Computed example of a mutant assay.
Amino acid sequence: MRERRRTLGLTQREVVGRLASQGSRTTNRALSSMENGRGLDLGLLPDLAESLECTVTYLLGLAEDPHCWQPDHDGRPPVRAVQPVLEEAGRAAGVLGPEIPTGFAAPGRIRRRGRPIAADGG
């Protein structure tokens, strides 16, 4: 995103102004965060693409050409879908359960000799 903005010779303030003229509100700080890979607002992607005169595919890093909608295919095998580690290990899948992973302690829980305290305090 930053690379495209700089290629067009735009400041963050100018991009924020372009977004505002399209009805999308954001700040320089929010744009800076997005350029640094933090806090990407997916709802802004189409307007960002228009403001930066490129495609959403390009902004997501899937195309080298800023005007190309099709992702690049460089001969690498497709990325494997992410599977929960617990599922691959043969344990129950879920956010953390129904089985809690070995060694897991919820935030704020005290560990005793490397083991989390049981829910009943023992």
Rank of each mutant, 00 (worst) to 15 (best):
R91T: 12
P101L: 08
D120Q: 15
D65K: 03
A119T: 11
P98L: 02
F104R: 07
A20Q: 09
V95E: 04
E88Q: 09
P107I: 07
R109E: 12
G9H: 14
P77N: 11
G17L: 15
G23W: 00
P46I: 01
D74P: 15
T26D: 04
V79H: 11
V85R: 02
N28C: 13
V95D: 09
E99R: 11
T102H: 13
H67P: 03
Y58R: 12
D41N: 09
T102C: 11
V95Q: 08
G61T: 09
L44S: 08
T27L: 07
L96Q: 15
L8S: 12
R111N: 07
L8I: 12
G114P: 02
A105I: 03
W69V: 05
L40A: 05
R109S: 15
R112D: 14
A105R: 14
Q22V: 02
D72Y: 07
Q83S: 02
P116R: 10
R25D: 02
G75W: 12
D41K: 03
E88H: 04
G122P: 09
G121W: 13
L52C: 13
S32H: 09
Q22G: 13
L60R: 03
P77E: 15
G103P: 07
G75R: 09
S51C: 14
V79E: 08
E64V: 11
P46C: 13
T55A: 04
R38T: 12
R13A: 04
V56S: 06
P101M: 08
I110E: 13
V56M: 11
R18I: 12
R6N: 01
P101N: 13
H67W: 09
L8M: 14
D41H: 00
P116Q: 03
T27Y: 02
V16W: 00
P77M: 13
V56H: 00
D41R: 00
G114S: 13
G61R: 09
P84I: 00
I117Q: 14
R6F: 00
L62S: 04
G94P: 03
N36M: 15
L48F: 03
S24D: 05
N36G: 15
M34Q: 14
E50R: 14
R91D: 09
T7N: 08
R5S: 03
P98R: 06
I117L: 08
W69G: 05
Q22M: 10
R111S: 08
G97K: 10
Y58V: 00
D120G: 14
G37Y: 00
P101F: 06
W69F: 10
E64D: 05
L19F: 01
T27N: 06
C68S: 10
M34K: 04
I110F: 05
L52F: 02
W69Q: 14
V82Y: 04
R4F: 09
G103E: 06
G23M: 06
T7L: 02
C54V: 07
L42K: 02
T7S: 04
F104G: 08
V79W: 12
G114E: 14
